[in-house]
Amino acid sequence: MADPFLIGDAMSGGYGSGPDILHGCTIAVEKGQIAVIVGPNGAGKSTAMKAVFGMLNVRDGAVRLAGEDITGLTPQARVAKGMGFVPQTSNIFTSMTVEENLEMGAFLRRDDIMTTIEQVYDLFPILRNKRNQAAGELSGGQRQQVAVGRALMTQPKVLMLDEPTAGVSPIVMDELFDRIIEVARTGISILMVEQNARQALEIADKGYVLVQGRNAFAGTGQDLLADPEVRKSFLGG
């Protein structure tokens, strides 16, 4: 069996020399699909994503991208391999304009970036209108659009989003999810940690429920939404 396009395979590890937070955790996503990590607070959701991105020590297990073992690579090297990461907080330069934020996202590129900037503006039309405005003056949802747009400037093969809808209204959440679906349709894999579990699983090709750093449930988004145990324990019935 060939690996999925991106897999964090049986990962155990934690931060620095601290105790393990992940215990044999496996997270994977196929090309052009959306995989969602859900679970209670403190379950290790963001930790699992950071492990895949190289931000903590994976003591056991491996991370593979397109069949290549990248477990030993730095986050910067993973960006060069085609991984984009949007953290939950501090994910934009507030004093820079929207367009300057997008330009900063293309720091590794040596080609013409204007086509990609236009693609971001097509995806998030409000950003075109606010391209010369300081990003710190935008609403929470618009800031998230800038953060996602900046990550897309690296032309990633995988886009990783940590709580993209945290603190935004339900209307903005739905709009962000619609844009995330559009990104996946272009062939980019999406790996997402999300507190709004039910809504996230509705758009997910694959879902993972983590509990205490371990896989509790895995399946298609629809399978997990229909699972009585998942519904009772994690989706409010």
Score class of each variant (00 low, 15 high):
residue 145 Q to E: 15
residue 205 D to P: 02
residue 67 G to D: 04
residue 78 R to N: 03
residue 223 D to G: 13
residue 17 S to T: 08
residue 133 Q to R: 15
residue 162 D to N: 11
residue 161 L to Q: 06
residue 122 D to V: 09
residue 215 N to M: 10
residue 2 A to M: 13
residue 118 E to Y: 11
residue 153 M to G: 10
residue 162 D to V: 00
residue 13 G to Y: 08
residue 211 V to E: 15
residue 146 V to N: 10
residue 182 E to L: 12
residue 54 G to I: 04
residue 127 L to C: 10
residue 96 M to V: 03
residue 219 G to N: 12
residue 212 Q to D: 14
residue 84 G to E: 04
residue 74 T to R: 15
residue 139 S to V: 02
residue 113 I to E: 03
residue 188 I to L: 03
residue 46 S to Y: 04
residue 216 A to P: 00
residue 163 E to N: 10
residue 38 V to E: 00
residue 122 D to C: 10
residue 38 V to T: 02
residue 192 M to D: 05
residue 180 I to W: 03
residue 220 T to Q: 11
residue 71 T to W: 09
residue 28 A to R: 12
residue 131 R to V: 02
residue 40 P to F: 00
residue 110 R to N: 14
residue 163 E to V: 02
residue 24 G to Y: 02
residue 48 A to C: 02
residue 104 M to Y: 02
residue 57 N to G: 05
residue 38 V to C: 13
residue 47 T to C: 04
residue 200 A to F: 01
residue 144 Q to P: 03
residue 226 A to G: 10
residue 70 I to C: 11
residue 117 I to D: 07
residue 185 R to G: 14
residue 27 I to L: 14
residue 94 T to S: 15
residue 49 M to Q: 09
residue 236 G to M: 12
residue 81 K to L: 05
residue 13 G to L: 04
residue 62 A to D: 09
residue 25 C to S: 09
residue 188 I to E: 01
residue 105 G to N: 07
residue 94 T to F: 07
residue 24 G to E: 01
residue 204 A to E: 11
residue 84 G to N: 06
residue 78 R to P: 02
residue 58 V to M: 09
residue 149 G to W: 04
residue 57 N to D: 15
residue 189 S to R: 06
residue 81 K to G: 00
residue 93 F to T: 07
residue 62 A to G: 13
residue 143 R to C: 00
residue 198 R to M: 06
residue 208 Y to N: 08
residue 189 S to Q: 04
residue 128 R to F: 12
residue 145 Q to T: 00
residue 151 A to T: 04
residue 167 G to W: 02
residue 101 N to E: 09
residue 53 F to C: 15
residue 122 D to L: 08
residue 194 E to R: 13
residue 172 V to Y: 07
residue 145 Q to C: 15
residue 126 I to F: 07
residue 23 H to Q: 07
residue 75 P to N: 11
residue 213 G to E: 06
residue 29 V to Q: 03
residue 47 T to N: 07
residue 42 G to H: 10
residue 115 T to G: 14
